[in-house]
């Protein structure tokens, strides 16, 4: 399935959001959004991905 992860097109096998994080080697303290909507960490396992989904994964960063 083709998705866009943090702005980059990707071909992935994962069917759910939690599987996608595992497949892409993302762990630790992150938050997720799919198609501009927040997906809480507890709902990632049940969140099925669709072709063309835009996924954002963010982590803590310096800020003012």
């Amino acid at each position: 399935m083709k998705i866009v992860l943090n702005g980059e097109p990707r071909e992935v096998r994962a069917q759910t959001l939690s599987d996608l994080l595992v497949e892409c080697g993302i762990s630790g303290r992150v938050a997720t959004a799919v198609n501009e909507d927040f997906v809480p960490s507890g709902l990632r396992i049940a969140h099925t991905l669709a072709d063309g989904d835009r996924i954002e994964v963010v982590a803590p960063m310096q800020g003012g």
């Binding site: 993302i26 630790g28 303290r29 963010v58 982590a59 803590p60 960063m61 310096q62 800020g63």
Partner: peptide
Amino acid sequence: ATVSLRRESGAGQTFWQMV
């Protein structure tokens, strides 16, 4: 401390640990 969120690049976890 004010902080922000940016696309995951691997550096975030170290920063968070320091904060």
